[in-house]
């Protein structure tokens, strides 16, 4: 039982991270190695607002998500846009950004681990298991956010433009879709999703300069397993990984749980390189 509840929480955080990462790949064909940096920026933005700015927790977290979204848009506009024609250059610049963010945070905050207060305290009993309320809130908010993203893409005018660009960027130009603006929007959305994962999970993890690395690796693994560019694939893979890791951590050891994502990636690349729900063209 505990495995199911905690596995669902882990899965939901993974899904938030992976969906944003796969979205920007699906639309702009960018492998954004700064995705983990978004996670870290959000954690520190919330930390600064709460502990140095004295903000209440909820407004601070919302502001942190907004700041990170703007940071994502800026990264796209300033760094990615001029290099868009070269995949390798985009890979290098986003890697550079993620290292710069980590180093910058280390210099400013001396690399110590800090913590964020939870949005809600206490424990709730679900399916006979006592769970920290913050974890349950994380699960709930993640599901709502991903649902909202899905509706936005399927139902709105901008969502239609996002789908159109992901299917045929040249045809999208012919019908008058401003590609660069859509790319910036999607980068902002992607950053906001990573930021949400960060402010939700940081209260039970921690805030430190290298905090973006593990989420980045997980998002990468999940997206390879689920299929690059496939949102349903990412959600499915996030759940697979989230539940398996939690199960292994409970019944074997938490050291082994970290090996699982890597093993799953190797297995997937060997058996089905396009991922569970990916199309082969994505590679």
């Amino acid at each position: 039982m505990e495995v199911i509840v905690l596995g669902a929480v882990t899965s939901s955080v993974y899904a938030l991270l992976a969906v944003g990462f796969t979205l920007i790949f699906g639309v702009a064909r960018i492998i954004n190695l700064a995705h983990g940096a978004f996670y870290a920026v959000a954690g520190y933005a919330a930390y600064i607002l709460i502990n140095l700015g004295g903000w209440p927790v909820l407004p601070a977290m919302l502001a942190a998500v907004l700041i990170t979204a703007l940071f994502g848009v800026a990264v796209d506009r300033v760094f990615v846009r001029p290099l868009r024609h070269s995949h390798m250059a985009v890979l290098m610049i986003t890697l550079a950004i993620s290292m710069a963010v980590e180093q910058g945070l280390t210099v400013a905050f001396l690399g110590e681990a800090r913590s964020l207060p939870p949005l809600i305290d206490g424990k709730v009993s679900v399916l006979g298991v006592d769970v920290a309320a913050q974890r349950l809130l994380t699960l709930l908010v993640s599901v709502v956010l991903i649902g909202a993203l899905w509706l936005f893409i399927q139902r709105s005018r901008l969502g239609a433009a996002i789908l159109a660009i992901s299917q045929d960027p040249e045809a999208a130009e012919y019908v008058g879709i401003p590609a660069e603006r859509i790319f910036a929007l999607v980068m902002g959305l992607s950053a906001a999703l990573a930021a949400s994962a960060s402010v939700l999970a940081s209260p039970f993890l921690s805030v430190q300069p290298s905090m973006g690395l593990l989420p980045m690796v997980k998002a990468f693994c999940i997206v390879i397993i689920g299929g690059l560019g496939s949102i349903p694939g990412s959600i499915l893979a996030a759940c697979l990984l989230g539940f398996t890791e939690t199960f292994v951590a409970f019944h074997i050891s938490s050291t082994w749980s970290e090996v699982i994502s890597v093993a799953a990636v190797f297995a997937m690349l060997a058996l089905r390189p396009a991922g569970l729900l990916g199309k082969r063209e994505a590679f």
Partner: peptide, 24 residues
Amino acid sequence: HCPEGRRLFAELSVLNNLRLGAFS
């Protein structure tokens, strides 16, 4: 512009393709 090779948005419905034509 109706391009060579049609270049429709293949995974979207006919209606959505038409509506995207009016994007601007």
